[in-house]
Design a protein around this nucleic acid. Sequence first.
DNA 1: TCTATTATTTGTCATATGACAAATAATCAG
DNA 2: CTGATTATTTGTCATATGACAAATAATAGA
Lengths: 187, 187
Amino acid sequence: MEVLKNEIRRLSGSNDAAVDEILKELTPKNLKKGAFLQRAGTISQRYYFIEKGAVRLFYEKGMEEFTVWIGTPGQIFTDLESYLSGQLSRINMEALEASQVYTITKDKSDKLATQSNAYNTILRRTVEIAFVNLSKNVISFQSDQASERYERVANEKDWLSKYPLKYISSFIGITQSSLSRIRAKKD
Amino acid sequence: MEVLKNEIRRLSGSNDAAVDEILKELTPKNLKKGAFLQRAGTISQRYYFIEKGAVRLFYEKGMEEFTVWIGTPGQIFTDLESYLSGQLSRINMEALEASQVYTITKDKSDKLATQSNAYNTILRRTVEIAFVNLSKNVISFQSDQASERYERVANEKDWLSKYPLKYISSFIGITQSSLSRIRAKKD
DNA sequence: TCTATTATTTGTCATATGACAAATAATCAG
DNA sequence: CTGATTATTTGTCATATGACAAATAATAGA
């Protein structure tokens, strides 16, 4: 779990002893391509840490799927709305390729947070970073054209050309066809 | 500072002694209608707590203003991107009416966070709540029509009909004229 | 209260993007 | 390798919303 170890060290700013205290609470889980880590209609009761692969978070509305986020190694996530409220999640989490994630239950996480300052800091920074990133997204929706939003994501996310268009376009907030045309123009 | 006291008690789940420890670190600031709490081009080095009134956060692009958020009594905010990175903020903060806010500098806030578990909890919950709310916004941008976004905001925000349209429409992600027409249809 | 300023509504027309469908292209399972 | 499935591109047309401007309406300062 090299990637996670580095990321946890980086986020917490802590030494290896403190980091190991955290790591030993995490349970590994391997996912085949297409496997679900969590389905809409259940309650998010775990935090997830990605070691390898990629996980897509999406919700369904009508007949369509909308991608909320795509996570890559080193990233930490959950459906925070469900996790905090205890209500049913509307989010599905699906492995886009063979992946390895580590998980911790809410119970364990809460306990660890009271004991470990390093862990506490990781969770806080994770939400802070997520908030700042999401803010940029909202700004882009408010004041950018579709092609500008595409550019922005393309510059920041290495997965933009790696996974099927249909997963990407809803993240950018446009249809597949439009994304295809935007991409065609850029060549 | 009744409103803030209640909110801080609620968020921290702490007793009055712990709450008072926090309150005594806050400095009051009164704003006339139209006054700026902070301007784009400066660094966000404070957290703000609203006791009374309303504060609008917006950025400028081209000749236009885009409202990012409108805060009302009990709410806690800053431009987190600038606050965390130390880089220049693109956000302006303007009082929509005569307001009273309490402020704390980053230095004091950081120190208080190490000393007071209650304060730490407040900051964490504030970001968590903000993140969840922002997520709902993004989902609305992805999968709702303009009129649906309007409805959603109208149901959640009591300020929707209280302040000028021009401040509201960019928050919803549409033009003033479109918002005016949407509103006309609803009657 | 009156006038000037600012905000909102409404009209007309333009345009970015969506909807739907068909044609290619790429990928995958046997 | 090959056919079947899935993904992408491309065409045509529809539509929600924007752009701009003018007409009202509301608000605020003297």
